[in-house]
Design a protein around this nucleic acid. Structure first.
Lengths: 114, 114
DNA sequence: ATTCGTTGTATCATTTAAAAAATAACGATG
DNA sequence: CATCGTTATTTTTTAAATGATACAACGAAT
């Protein structure tokens, strides 16, 4: 069994017209936004610059037919960001697909070298 | 059908003790080496620096139980590099797995949104 | 022992990407 | 209309990956 010391890893993402639509980091970002209700707080939590987080959110929203988040600038508390139902659906979709892919690959490797 | 404008993409790789063992670029490099019998020629063909190609080859060989390439320095023609049978097996394994992964993901997306 | 083209190694320059910082815009609220 | 913390944008700085260059080591062949 040569392959016991090796691990197979995978990364999936979904491309749209504007470039990358969904990927691991973006999903994590969405989940942090759900918790904090703020891009800046989510970015800080993830040790990511606000700019990068904003750009991710922006391209995601542009790529999506329906926005994944709604952003409010100004107002009481300065504003904030909410993940939409569409956003929740995308999170579930991506994570389900990602998990399935991992399981499949592990099984394939096992099938070949088991 | 919301997803007709989106494409799912994937990337797989195999990690060993020394870090990345097999990945897309390394497989392509191996294949170029088969053609040319030389690291430097393969690197040039791929628009890659010799140094980077050499480092890839080196970590691959260190991670493998049996070397994927044998390198000869000096001699008639200056030397050269040959891909071993083990190397050929790894190429086949990786490409097979990669292809299967793509097919699987496309099928999964179709199953959900078809 | 000279030649050859390759592998192998080190150094420096350049380009690119990421991070950080600074600033403006926003708008409900008191 | 001043305040607040957020979103949004621009600029600057830093770090990292990449590229280029140069040169030593190698060893069969002539």
């Amino acid at each position: 069994m040569v392959f016991k010391d090796y691990k197979i890893k995978s990364r999936i993402w979904i491309d749209g017209k504007q470039g990358t639509f969904l990927a691991e980091g973006r999903i994590a970002l969405l989940k942090e936004i759900i918790v904090s209700g703020s891009i800046s707080a989510a970015a800080k939590q993830m040790n990511m610059s606000y700019k990068k987080a904003w750009e991710m959110i922006n391209t995601m929203n542009k790529s999506a037919e329906q926005p994944l988040v709604v952003r409010v600038s100004g107002g009481a508390g300065g504003g904030g960001t909410q993940v939409t139902d569409e956003g929740l659906k995308m999170i579930q979709l991506f994570e389900k697909l990602n998990k399935k892919c991992q399981v499949y690959l592990d099984k394939e490797l096992e099938k070949i070298f088991g």
